[in-house]
Simulated assay, not measured.
Amino acid sequence: MFTRPVRAVTVLTRPVHPAAASQASGAAEEVRITRKTLLGLPDPGSPAPPAPKLPDHPAYQQIMAVFTAADHPLRARQVCEAMDLAVAPNNINNVRLSSSGWPAAGS
Rank of each mutant, 00 (worst) to 15 (best):
79 V>P: 03
12 L>I: 05
4 R>Q: 15
33 I>L: 14
103 P>D: 10
54 L>M: 11
75 R>N: 13
73 P>T: 11
44 P>V: 04
33 I>M: 08
15 P>I: 12
79 V>Q: 06
55 P>S: 14
69 A>S: 09
96 R>M: 13
90 N>F: 02
81 E>W: 04
60 Y>D: 07
30 E>R: 13
39 L>H: 14
49 P>I: 06
33 I>A: 15
2 F>K: 14
29 E>Y: 11
13 T>M: 05
25 S>E: 02
73 P>N: 09
57 H>F: 12
72 H>M: 15
37 T>E: 13
8 A>W: 12
27 A>L: 09
37 T>L: 12
77 R>A: 15
13 T>V: 08
47 P>K: 06
48 A>Y: 06
85 L>F: 06
10 T>P: 02
25 S>K: 11
23 Q>P: 09
22 S>I: 04
6 V>C: 13
23 Q>S: 13
91 N>R: 10
102 W>V: 01
66 V>A: 07
58 P>V: 10
53 K>Q: 07
48 A>H: 08
62 Q>N: 00
79 V>F: 03
22 S>K: 02
62 Q>S: 01
85 L>P: 01
88 A>I: 06
45 G>P: 03
67 F>K: 06
105 A>P: 14
42 P>Y: 01
32 R>V: 12
24 A>D: 10
94 N>L: 09
102 W>P: 01
92 I>H: 11
62 Q>V: 01
28 A>F: 07
89 P>Q: 14
80 C>F: 04
19 A>K: 01
47 P>H: 05
98 S>K: 04
28 A>P: 03
93 N>G: 07
77 R>H: 09
100 S>N: 01
78 Q>H: 08
15 P>L: 08
24 A>W: 06
67 F>W: 03
27 A>E: 12
16 V>S: 06
12 L>E: 11
65 A>P: 05
86 A>S: 11
79 V>A: 03
6 V>R: 15
96 R>K: 12
48 A>C: 00
53 K>H: 12
28 A>L: 09
10 T>H: 08
53 K>P: 05
43 D>E: 11
35 R>I: 10
29 E>W: 12
58 P>T: 08
96 R>W: 14
86 A>W: 02
27 A>Y: 14
55 P>V: 03
69 A>Q: 09
